[in-house]
Write a protein that binds this DNA or RNA. Structure first.
Length: 1102
RNA sequence: GGGCGAUUAGCUCAGUUGGCUAGAGCGCCUCCCUUACAAGGAGGAGGCCACAGGUUCGAGUCCUGUAUCGCCCACCA
């Protein structure tokens, strides 16, 4: 039963171990009355169900699992709350695209219910896949509590939140300019828009002035890259004070010139010159125009024949174009601002599906000015044309034929594209729902306190460090973004998501009867009982339709009777759904059962730490904090740890859409989950992202092909086929790749190929040699344990006095104590890479390479008795210490490599059920490793021994010196040598006491240790810190002279440095006393060495 | 345009309030199939710490500037 395979095989171990944990309930959370500071909660950032996970997720979840397992072993009441996110637009877009590709159908062909059904199917498939990926990774989340952002419990939470915010006046409806995706027909958020440079033109148009006064121009010239938007122009703006503007710009530049470096100087001077030119050519004209504007001059907008004002506004930049700018409030974000400022009509000329709309002309009688009800008389010419293609051509042609085009320039423009549909974005004015985050009426938070607004409240808790960011610099990202206090658009014109639970009624009546006063509205709801009415939150929507107005009601959750009554009275439910981040923002408490007061909510809210990626600090982290404070009255987590990002070989972040995401299951299949986790943790440093060059593992020959090379090859072959490359090639463009191994050179398919191609060519898994270090370590751990198991069966568990142990025993125990202590420190600061390094040093270098190698003779019974230790006692001690160190190592490694350590732990429990160091630590072994305790936070003070650590490192250096000399002297390993060590009087005693260590490790027959003496005849020597090592009978005076000369030069150089330091009065007075003392001692040593080396060199005839 | 970060061995990265004779892993070279592990062991070579100034007794570390690279945010009639 003690036989382990010679090579660790993760595939034979992992499934069995994971099943064991699940069956034993080790992942489950148990709410009780544990105090907050002994509770550890992480809510998993719910992966989107858009697709399978890649290595970025693997990193994030590995780090979470490390923290969770660590805290569980430290005795915390632990919950890791898992789940998935419906990801609104992203998922709907993926499914729609797929249906279009496979069936040629759009969502309108399918209808709302059918599309949503299809997306649920997709969700089920990917949720399963995601969960299985995470489980293969070893994630110890409380899987039975898994939640999905659209499931019933969370839907309830969303409704409660929406109703509460609506009632508190935090949710409102308004017309806003949004990024409109004409393909998916929905608003998309700023971060779902990417920009592409496109070749276009810059058209300069003339708009005629109506009734110009003498001396005034007949036309105003404006320039645009989007001519079709002119149909919606409602003004032309010119700067209110052009002369002042030029003065101001000029003085700014002059100030800059005073402060600037020589290099910037030329640039600023040329700017100044340009400004002067501009002033000369344009200022008079602009002053005229601005005077005309103030005088109320109007323009005739060509084509649609609209009368529009010439206005003044600071947005018009006198240095750009003609100095005049057309204002299209409904189709440009900046113009929109001008429209709001100057109370201009906002005329929408775009249909949701990207065509020119029927244009409604403003009603000059209405105040404030609103789009009116009269149709433009030219609608039959333009309505229905494709917006930026047909309509643009038509507008330009019509302007041309009227002779109103001044010039046309070529120009490159940045066009916003939807990340989801890859089509151009149009700014579009539409009705949307918003969450007010800015300051306003005092807002009562969940704990009863008041804030000026949601954003401010969320900023305060970070400023005063109720929430801490790791690394700290990310607090700035968070604060900067929240500081803008932008309203949050929460409505999406999608079918996949939480339906907005608002019902609205179009009320026909005198506009003036209606204010936002809820009393007025309620009077009209006679068909509801007073009790039902109290469960409605009403809101009068701004704007009106002719002489009708819109009244909205949010219905309190769980009142279907009210909804039925509303429907019966011609109320309509808002067709929109909520932004996916609305439900995500509730995640820290909705998953725990809120709005119910569940035991889980009580025990596990607020969370301890959020582990996430820096690109959602704004979208997600900030919003969770706002909602947490508003709803729960407490921050949702005490700390935020921002993980590094996983980059591919070209330095680009891994993402599903780029197609450079590697499936962690591929890596697990080849290297094992522990190897993956080890490598990930090892690379997770504080400042660097993780570069992960990817290779394809050829299914035919097993050789690796670099992905970046494959991309280059693909690019070449596309070029040679004459294909145009409009963008940088992505890994997803490589469906088939040729193996770069010369003898193979066979094609294989990659993960992006379809099933038939995969079957035909064979599928290559994607890997990275970075994981070899993890696999190698697993094997080392495995074999070290395998070795130990041979000797430590029923090792004793005696009460031992540390001082009775041999030095090497005391040394490894001191190292263990030191390591344990450091691990706790690194964990507290999320220094994962440091944890791995520390543990690897302890285990591989300390325990395997030194301790085990040193103890082999004792373990096998070959060691002779000494004056202090009988051979038998020596063996017993070694077994006990080894068993103990192995036990402790498994615990310390477990959070990082759970599978292999658990497997070895089971074995260890069978072999040495009774182990430990009584008197220092009592060990329980009747549990699985996953729930076994960690070594204590402050290590084992009883084992701490700074002296032995110092002495040992000296011995190690001496050993290395002997080994080096042996190798250089061509001495075969089995041949014993005689060695003399010369060192200072101070170190003599401790060195002698430990001399057996040097003897064992270096293959020494006779060892002389002395503080004075000459070079033994025919010996080779090396000088190291404070001591010199001679290996006898190597006999090469030429080599020896060379080495001595080199050492001498080295030491002389150091002495010069030290003397310089110590002769410097500033150093003596400025530096700390211990630093000075250490330097003095060091100098003494060096000088002693120097003297004896000089003598030696003399003897050698140098 | 604004913000953040990086630049240390051939490669990937550590280097914690300034005290360094600058470290690790991989790769490389030499030796070793020694009964835990060749996915291993022993040893070694390899660095004007991007550049230029400054502060300091002392700078890889702090300050200023320059160069290169990366990320985030905003904007471009």
């Amino acid at each position: 039963m003690f036989e382990l395979e010679k090579v660790y095989d993760p595939r034979a171990v992992e499934p069995e171990i994971f099943a064991r944990w699940e069956q034993s309930g080790a992942f489950r959370s148990h709410p009780g009355d544990t105090p907050h500071d002994r509770t550890f909660t992480i809510v998993m950032p719910p992966p989107n169900v858009t697709g399978a996970l890649h290595l970025g997720h693997a990193l994030n979840n590995t780090l979470q699992d490390i923290l969770v397992r660590y805290h569980r072993m430290c005795g915390f009441n632990t919950l890791w709350q898992p789940g998935t996110d419906h990801a609104g637009i992203a998922t709907q877009a993926v499914v729609e695209r797929r249906i279009l590709q496979q069936e040629g159908k759009t969502r309108h062909d399918l209808g709302r219910d059918e599309l949503v059904r299809r997306i649920w199917q997709w969700k089920d498939e990917y949720e399963r896949r995601i969960t299985s990926q995470l489980k293969l990774l070893g994630c110890s989340a409380d899987w039975e509590r898994s939640r999905f952002t659209l499931d019933d419990g969370l839907a309830k939470a969303v409704r409660h939140q929406f109703f509460k915010m609506f009632k508190d006046g935090l949710i409102f409806r308004g017309k806003r300019l949004v990024n409109w995706d004409t393909q998916l027909q929905t608003a998309v958020s700023d971060d779902e828009v990417y920009h592409e440079t496109v070749k276009g033109h810059f058209w300069h148009f003339r708009y005629p002035v109506i009734d110009p006064k003498p001396g005034e121009p007949q036309h105003v010239i404006i320039a645009t890259t989007r001519p079709e938007t002119m149909l919606g122009d409602t003004a032309v703006a010119v700067h209110p004070d052009p002369a002042g503007f030029f003065d101001q710009q000029e003085s700014k530049l002059r100030d800059a010139l005073l402060k600037c470096s020589a290099k910037e100087r030329a640039e600023i001077e040329s700017k100044l010159a340009a400004l002067a030119d501009r002033r000369a050519t344009h200022l008079d004209h602009l002053i005229t125009l601005s005077r005309m504007a103030n005088d109320g001059r109007k323009l005739r907008l060509p084509l649609v024949e609209r009368i529009i004002p010439l206005i003044t506004d600071e947005w018009a930049d006198p240095t750009l174009g003609s100095g005049c700018v057309k204002i299209t409030p409904a189709h440009d974000p900046n113009d929109y601002q001008v429209g709001v400022r100057k109370n201009l009509p906002m005329i929408n000329v775009l249909t949701p599906d990207g065509k020119i709309a029927k244009i409604m002309e403003p009603d000059p009688a209405a105040a404030p000015v609103k789009p009116g009800s009269s149709e433009n008389i030219h609608n039959d010419i333009y309505a229905g044309l494709e917006f930026s293609t047909q309509a643009r051509a038509k507008v330009v042609a019509d302007m041309e034929s009227r002779g109103l085009i001044e010039t046309i320039e070529d120009r490159e423009t940045e066009i916003g594209h939807s990340d989801r549909s890859k089509t151009p974005i149009e700014p579009f004015l539409s009705d949307q729902w918003f969450v007010r985050t800015g300051d306003g009426e005092p807002l009562q938070l969940g704990d009863g306190s008041y804030a000026t607004g949601l954003a401010q409240a969320a900023m305060d808790v970070v400023s005063n460090e109720d929430i801490e960011f790791f690394p700290a610099r990310y607090a700035k990202t968070y604060l900067d973004w929240l500081g803008e206090k932008r309203d949050w658009c929460i409505s999406r014109q999608l079918w996949w998501g939480h339906r907005i639970h608002d019902w609205y009624i179009v009320w026909e009546g005198p506009y003036s009867d209606y204010t936002s006063d809820s009393q007025t509205v309620r009077m009209d709801l006679d068909y509801l009982t007073p009790e039902q009415r109290s469960n409605l939150a009403p809101q009068v929507f701004p704007g009106r339709l002719g002489n009708r107005i819109l009244v909205g009601f949010a219905v309190a959750p769980a009142h279907p009777d009210i909804e039925t009554a509303l429907i019966a009275h011609d109320a309509t439910q808002d067709p929109d759904v909520l932004d996916t981040w609305f439900s995500s923002a509730l995640w820290p408490f909705s998953t725990l059962g809120w709005p119910e007061e569940t035991p889980h909510l009580k025990q596990y809210y607020p969370g301890t730490v959020l582990v996430t990626s820096r690109d959602i600090i704004t979208n997600w982290v900030a919003r969770m904090v706002m909602f947490g404070l508003y709803t729960m009255g407490k921050v949702p987590f005490d700390r935020v740890y921002i993980t590094p990002k996983v980059l591919d070989g070209r330095g680009e972040t891994m993402s599903k859409s780029k197609g450079n995401g590697v499936d962690p299951v591929d890596v697990i299949h080849i290297y094992g989950a522990d190897a993956l986790r080890y490598s990930m943790a090892d690379m997770a440093t504080e400042t660097q992202d993780i570069r992960m060059p990817i290779e394809y593992l050829c299914p035919h020959c097993g050789h690796l092909t670099e992905q970046s090379l494959a991309l280059k090859n693909e690019e070449q072959s596309r070029k040679s086929r004459g294909e145009k490359l409009e963008r940088k090639l992505q890994p997803a463009d490589c469906l088939r790749v040729r193996c770069t191994h010369k003898e193979c050179a066979t094609e294989f398919a990659t993960q992006w190929a379809d099933d038939t191609l995969k079957k035909e060519l064979g599928l290559a898994r994607e890997v990275s040699d970075k994981f070899e270090i993890g696999r190698n370590f697993c094997n080392k751990l495995w074999n070290a344990a395998r070795f130990a198991f041979r000797y430590i069966e029923n090792a004793p568990c005696d009460r031992l006095a540390v001082s009775d142990l041999l030095p090497e025993d005391r040394w490894i125990l001191a190292r263990l104590s030191e390591t344990s202590r450091r691990i706790h420190g690194f964990m507290a600061n999320y220094q994962f890479s440091a944890i791995v390094k520390e543990l690897r040093d302890f285990f591989w270098d300390g325990l395997c390479d030194w301790y085990i190698e040193l103890t082999k003779p004792r373990l096998s019974g070959e060691a002779a008795s000494t004056s202090t230790h009988s051979a038998e006692a020596s063996k017993r001690h070694a077994c006990q210490v080894l068993a103990f160190c192995l036990d402790q190592s498994l615990r310390l490694w477990h959070p990082i490599m759970p599978f292999i350590t658990e497997r070895l732990w089971q074995q260890l429990n069978g072999i040495v059920p009774n182990r430990g160091m009584p008197g220092v630590v009592e060990i329980q072994t009747n549990c699985d490793l996953i729930s076994a305790p960690m070594p204590p936070t402050d290590g084992y003070p009883a084992f701490d021994d700074p002296t032995i650590l110092t002495t040992f490192s000296q011995l190690q250096e001496a050993t290395r010196a002997v080994r080096d000399l042996r190798l250089k002297g061509n001495i075969v390993p089995k041949q014993m040598v005689d060695v003399t060590v010369i060192l200072s009087d101070t170190d003599l005693k401790s060195f002698r006491a430990n001399a057996h260590i040097l003897r064992t490790t270096a293959g020494i027959a006779s060892l002389t240790i002395t503080s004075s003496g000459k070079r033994p005849v025919n010996s080779a020597s090396l000088a190291i810190h404070g001591l010199r090592v001679y290996v006898h009978d190597i006999g090469d005076d030429v080599m020896e002279r060379e080495r001595t000369t080199k050492s001498l030069a080295d030491i002389e150089k150091q002495i010069v440095g030290k003397q310089g330091k110590l002769n410097n009065p500033g150093f003596i007075s400025g530096a700390k006393a211990d630093v000075v003392a250490a330097e003095r001692e060091r100098l003494d040593q060096l000088q002693q060495q120097l003297a004896s080396l000089r003598i030696q060199l003399g003897e050698l005839g140098g």
